[in-house]
Simulated assay, not measured.
Amino acid sequence: MQNSLQELKEIWDQWNDETKQLFYSNYGDLPYLFDIKVDEQLFQTLAQYWNSAYSCFTFGKVDLVPTVEEYTALLRCPRFQVDKAYSRAVYVPAFWKKLTNITGMSEQWITARIKQKGECKCIPWKNL
């Protein structure tokens, strides 16, 4: 289903500043998409190279996945905050929980072997 752009703009215009700020804080700069002029020829060209099976662009034998910065440039959206993700993870398990699921080892075994390496937590290969 595709929403009506005009209807979305009207809803946005009805909101007060406080509601808009709440939306920005939760979803980032998405409302800026309302004002983007879509280059239809660009998207028709890109659509020819879109590989839906792998969710990337395929040019011959080369697969490319644009970064947020590259999409920003293609869409001409300089106001986007490239350091924001535009979706939220519902639940991100702790590092030890991920390792418990992957290795099948107990929580105690995992937490006893977790080491800090720089800014990251890891588990030494010798323990795996």
Rank of each mutant, 00 (worst) to 15 (best):
S25Y: 11
E119W: 03
Q41A: 14
W12S: 01
E40I: 13
D13V: 03
T111G: 02
C77Y: 08
L64A: 10
L128T: 08
I123N: 02
R79D: 12
Y49H: 13
P124M: 06
Q108H: 11
Q6M: 07
Y86G: 03
P31A: 05
S106N: 04
S87Q: 13
W50N: 01
K117I: 11
N51S: 09
Q44E: 15
N101V: 14
K126I: 09
R88M: 08
T100A: 13
T45C: 09
P124S: 07
T103L: 12
I110N: 06
N51V: 04
C122W: 06
L30E: 04
Y32F: 12
F59G: 02
S87I: 10
G60D: 06
G28V: 01
D29W: 03
G104N: 05
I114R: 01
W50M: 06
K98A: 12
L74F: 08
R79I: 01
Q48I: 06
K115D: 05
P31F: 03
Y24S: 00
L74C: 04
Y27E: 06
S52K: 14
T111A: 01
S52T: 11
D83Q: 12
V38E: 08
G28F: 00
I11T: 08
A85P: 03
W125H: 11
L64R: 10
N3D: 12
F43N: 00
S52R: 12
K84C: 04
V68W: 06
T100S: 12
K115Q: 14
Q48Y: 09
T111H: 02
E107H: 07
D29Q: 07
Y71I: 08
I123K: 02
L64Q: 07
E69W: 04
P66A: 06
G60C: 04
W125F: 13
F23D: 04
Y27K: 07
T67L: 10
L128Q: 06
S87D: 11
P66V: 05
W125E: 12
W96D: 15
D63Q: 15
F23S: 02
D13N: 14
A73P: 02
V38P: 01
A94F: 08
T67Y: 02
E107D: 10
Q44L: 11
S87N: 14
D35H: 11
T67D: 02
N3P: 07
A53M: 10
W109M: 04
C120W: 12
E107S: 11
F43V: 02
N127A: 13
L8R: 06
E107Y: 11
Q2R: 08
L128F: 15
D29N: 08
V62W: 10
V82C: 10
D83T: 12
T67M: 03
C120H: 15
N51E: 13
N51W: 05
E10M: 07
Q48M: 10
K37T: 10
L128A: 10
F57E: 03
Y24L: 05
P124W: 02
N16W: 00
V68C: 07
C120D: 14
V62R: 14
V62C: 10
L42M: 13
T45Q: 10
V38S: 04
S4W: 03
